[in-house]
Design a protein around this nucleic acid. Structure first.
Length: 172
DNA sequence: AGCAAGATCGGT
DNA sequence: CCGATCTTGCTG
C-alpha cells in the first residue's frame, strides 16, 4: 500500500491522533521492511496548550514542530528515551501527535527502541522518506479517549483534555 | 557556567 | 516509590 500523502497530515493534531490508530508505521532498511500498527497516540496542540513543548516558544529543540505536517519531531527525555512525534497542520503552526503504542510495543520509549527510530529521524519527511512512512490499512478501530500521560506540570485545563487515544481492544 | 526538570521505564 | 541518565532551556 502507498504511504499517506501530505494532505492527511495537514489537519489538526487531535484529528490526526484519532485517525492514526489502526494505520501502520512502515520502516525500511536495505534488507527488510517492517510494519507496526499504531495502537495509541496523544495530541499536542498550538494555541496555548501548556503541555505542548512549543507553548514555550520556538527553540532549538521544538523547531521541527514548526515544519509542515508530515515531518517527524524527535526528542530525547530522561536521559534514555526517544519520543516519536508526527507533526501536523500547516507550517509555523506547531502541533504534533506522540506515538505511544505501535505493534507489540507499549509506551513511547519502547516504541522507538523497538522500531529502531532515534534522533537521526528528527525532521524526517514521512511523505518522501525511503526509510519510514505511514500506511493506510482500511481498519478503523474503536477508540477510547482519556487525559494525556505525564504532563501534570501543564495544569488545568490542559491536564484534563481527553487527547490520548487508545484502540479499545488494547485495554483488555 | 550551573542547574532543575523532563510527553519514561523497570526494579524494589 | 525511587533511581537511572543526559539534553535542553533558563538563570545569573
Amino acid at each position: 500500500m502507498p504511504g499517506v500523502d501530505r494532505s492527511f497530515f495537514l489537519s489538526d493534531a487531535v484529528t490526526v491522533a484519532q485517525l492514526l490508530p489502526g494505520m501502520n508505521i512502515v520502516t525500511a532498511s536495505e534488507d527488510r521492511t517492517a510494519r507496526f500498527m499504531i495502537t495509541e497516540t496523544e495530541a499536542y496542540l498550538s494555541d496555548g496548550d501548556k503541555a505542548c513543548h512549543a507553548s514555550r516558544g520556538r527553540t532549538g529543540r521544538t523547531e521541527p514542530m514548526y515544519l509542515e505536517g508530515g515531518h517527524l519531531y524527535m526528542y530525547f527525555v530522561y536521559g534514555m528515551h526517544w519520543m516519536m512525534n508526527v507533526v501536523t497542520g500547516p507550517a509555523d503552526y506547531p502541533q504534533a501527535v506522540l506515538i505511544r503504542g505501535a505493534g507489540p510495543f507499549s509506551g513511547p520509549g519502547r516504541v522507538t527502541r523497538g522500531m529502531g527510530i532515534d534522533g537521526s529521524f528528527n525532521r524526517e519527511d514521512l511523505t518522501t522518506s525511503e526509510r519510514v512512512w505511514i500506511e493506510e490499512t482500511g481498519s478503523r478501530p474503536e477508540l477510547i479517549a482519556g487525559p494525556r500521560v505525564g504532563i501534570g506540570y501543564a495544569g488545568e485545563p490542559w491536564v484534563s483534555k481527553p487527547w490520548r487515544f487508545i484502540i479499545s481492544e488494547e485495554l483488555k
